[in-house]
């Protein structure tokens, strides 16, 4: 554990809490892509099937929180606050993300076993899982500030992991190419959003895309 990884995990946790609180407090999931949230639930489920492999209390606890929170979010969007779900704007075709991620996981993995292929699939899937949400923001041309904070915290987490991987490579000689390449792709997808967040949201303006 190093500072980049810890802050990255906390940023990830913060993102999940912001989203749950936003939906709970406003009793609405307007502006939130249910499709991205389903993809995240798939990501955590397929990645944390290795839960019986005990690493640490921290590791186990975080995995359980991520899985539980992702299902709770999907439940709030598709069941409890279904009436507020903006499905007309959530039209990204997720099969174009799920199928290629799965095929790539079958082709490029560390070990051709069920658990390892599913872990690899989750890494590829996570790198693009936010696309339906970003697509929704670009389609409506705007995002509420709280949604922007959520996206910023979620995007920062993988960027911090990149620093963690550099640190681990230099100090422990440890690296995992699959996670590194996918993590870079994931972070790059947020770049456009990061720019808008820093130039607009942090200056108190609403995140609004140029017409």
């Amino acid at each position: 554990m190093n500072i980049f990884r810890l802050v990255g995990d906390l940023s990830h946790l913060l993102a999940i809490i912001i989203l749950l609180l936003k939906i709970w407090k406003t009793r609405s999931c307007a502006g939130i892509s249910g499709k991205s949230q389903i993809l995240f639930a798939i990501v955590y489920t397929s990645r944390y099937l290795d839960l019986p492999n005990f690493v640490s209390m921290y590791n186990t606890l975080m995995k359980i929180v991520f899985i539980a929170a992702s299902y709770a979010t999907v439940y709030l969007i598709y069941m409890k606050f279904k009436a507020t779900y903006d499905h007309n704007h959530d039209t990204f075709r997720v099969e174009f993300l799920v199928l290629p991620s799965f095929v790539l996981a079958l082709l490029i993995n560390h070990d051709f076993t069920v658990l390892e292929v599913l872990w690899t699939f989750s890494i590829y899937m996570e790198s693009v899982a936010i696309l339906p949400q970003l697509f929704m923001v670009s389609k409506t041309g705007e995002a509420e500030s709280i949604t922007s904070h959520y996206l910023f915290a979620l995007g920062s987490y993988r960027a911090l992991y990149i620093l963690n991987w550099i640190y681990r490579y230099t100090t422990e000689d440890h690296y995992d190419l699959i996670a590194i390449v996918a993590g870079i792709v994931q972070t790059v997808l947020y770049c456009d959003f990061f720019y808008l967040y820093i130039t607009k949201v942090l200056k108190g303006k609403k995140l609004q895309l140029p017409a």
Binding site: R47, M62, F66, H110, E116, D173, Y175, D176
Partner: peptide
Amino acid sequence: SSDFDIHDEL
């Protein structure tokens, strides 16, 4: 090296 036996990251 890349030890994929146990993924210690989240």
